[in-house]
Simulated assay, not measured.
Amino acid sequence: MFPPLCCDSGVDQASRRRHHQSRKMAMLSFWRDGLERQLAAVTAAMDTLQRQIDRDAQSDS
């Protein structure tokens, strides 16, 4: 991530580090949530397709 654009001399290094880490955690959680939604959509599409394949195989028999 990028360093802060303006450093506040009144805030100690540990506090800035904690703030940076919490923002990074929020960003990573946001990315993970999006990926989980995409994975759920792909999984649902695959399940639906498999049911259709199974149904078509039974009707051909």
Rank of each mutant, 00 (worst) to 15 (best):
P3S: 10
P4G: 01
L5S: 04
L5A: 07
C6G: 00
C7H: 10
C7T: 11
D8S: 08
D8F: 03
G10Y: 03
G10N: 09
G10V: 02
V11Y: 12
V11M: 14
D12A: 07
A14F: 09
S15K: 06
S15Q: 06
R17V: 14
R17G: 15
H19E: 12
H20K: 02
Q21P: 01
S22C: 03
S22V: 05
R23F: 04
R23G: 00
R23N: 04
M25L: 11
A26W: 09
A26E: 10
M27W: 03
L28A: 02
S29I: 06
S29N: 13
F30R: 06
F30N: 07
F30T: 05
F30Q: 12
W31A: 08
D33H: 09
G34V: 04
G34F: 05
L35D: 11
R37I: 05
L39D: 08
A40G: 01
A40E: 05
A41F: 02
T43H: 06
T43F: 03
A44H: 09
A45L: 07
D47K: 15
D47E: 13
D47F: 06
D47V: 11
D47Y: 07
L49V: 14
L49P: 04
Q50H: 12
R51Y: 15
Q52D: 15
D54Q: 13
R55Q: 15
R55P: 01
R55C: 06
D56G: 14
D56N: 14
S59L: 12
S59M: 14
S59R: 15
S61T: 06
S61V: 09
S61R: 13
